[in-house]
Nucleic acid binder design. Structure first.
Lengths: 231, 231
DNA sequence: ATTTATTGTTTTGTCGATGATTTCAGGAAA
DNA sequence: TTTCCTGAAATCATCGACAAAACAATAAAT
């Protein structure tokens, strides 16, 4: 056959597809925090029955992106400064441990992955300064790819799964409030320092730099959220 | 009114209740690994329709306790030695970071929690040696409570949630294979050493001891699983 | 005026039924 | 024997409809 992986959605159930759509809609902020997710409305909107919708919503509940109370339906999980600081602690803890393990276990292909993704990110970092608007999405991708590459060799898929979950949560906060354009920080320099520490196999330095990297984002974000709440 | 919290299951949906039952059945091993979870069968068994059942199964999928393939139904997630080693790495990483944070942030009430749960666990450790059969369940509870107490002050509910998830997964493996009765290890001594390191605020020692504590369990468990597979 | 019933409306959670997909058994062809 | 097909049985995913619960608004009562 000439077409092998054309049917990407083979055995794809409606519940799964709507799960993916809702998920990205929530993370991207298209569905606002605390927005109620009424079954009938979404049912009409996505053109499917209530059953697969509820299944998708249940999975999103387990992911922590949706909240539910018995007999009172579903709603997009709220965004809250305190909750984000909490989340950031967890993310930092997991990421630093993962990078330590990665530095200990990583081989050649891991190193080359770090180099490759950094190379691409460096270009995006520059593009972000010059054309902030259109470069945003691809910067997000490159940024995520670089950080994922640094921890890729940690040796535990479970740890990576946990990390991905926390990353998604933080991504939602970032998309919601941080304005990367007027960030008075040298992202390229931060990333370069992280790359160097990682490739030098300097665990302590890598952990410290990544921790600062996350904390800087968290500080900017919480300031912006606080002033947003006041408005 | 004289009865205030009698209705513990107020607003409890069928999906949630069956989720809880299935969850504990899977963790306790009552539902065997790789057992297929056919809708109609479970539907009759629990006396409910297919819709709430599917919702519960979807959440269990997100938890990693159940696997599903589109149009091919659900099955209890398999138990696998390699998977468990992977899982143990993640758990160790999260637990050690959490205990570090806890040591840094913990106050008086945290210390007293550690002392209290250790006291109860010490009694259970002794009971386990003498009456292995009937003391098993309460030992599990006391053990979980002690370890939870050590990390309780980490300052992040998200980190605790992630930790709990990994703990449940490991619990399933433990229940499935480890025979605590003929464990040629001094659990009481290990726990005492952990308590002392924690109360001394010695991060490095606490991390090391907890890591060894987990690794010992993992080693015993993987040996038992390997010989179990060969039989 | 604030609280407490009451009634009607909206929305949720659940069921039974149905079309679609997969699995399995048994026979034909290699 | 093995492989391949074919049709039947089983199972899945989805729908539409219904009962129960929450919500809103009005009326009655302290």
């Amino acid at each position: 056959m000439s077409f092998q992986d054309v049917d990407e959605d083979r055995g794809m159930t409606l519940a799964e597809t709507v799960y993916g759509r809702l998920r990205s809609d929530i993370i991207s902020g298209e569905r606002a925090p605390e927005e109620r997710l009424r079954i009938e409305r979404l049912s009409r909107l996505y053109g499917i029955g209530p059953t697969p919708l509820r299944e998708a919503l249940q999975r999103l509940c387990a992911d922590g992106l949706v909240w539910s109370r018995g007999n009172r339906g579903f709603a997009v999980a709220p965004l809250d400064v305190a909750e984000f600081m909490d989340l950031n602690i967890a993310r930092k803890a997991v990421e630093t441990e993962a990078v330590s393990l990665s530095i200990r276990n990583g081989g050649d292909e891991w190193e080359s992955g770090v180099v490759a993704t950094f190379y691409r990110l460096e270009k995006q970092d520059r593009a972000l300064v010059e054309h902030p608007e259109e470069a945003l999405d691809s910067w997000e991708m490159a940024n995520a790819a670089f950080h994922r590459a640094t921890v890729a060799a940690c040796g535990s898929r479970w740890l990576l799964k946990v990390r991905a979950r926390l990353h998604d949560q933080c991504e939602r906060y970032r998309r919601a409030s941080v304005d990367l354009r007027r960030a008075e920080r040298d992202l390229a320099a931060e990333h370069r320092a992280i790359r160097d520490a990682v490739l030098d196999r300097d665990e302590a330095a890598a952990r410290k730099l990544i921790g600062q990297h996350f904390d800087t984002t968290a500080r900017m974000l919480s300031e912006e959220m606080r002033q947003g709440q006041g408005a």
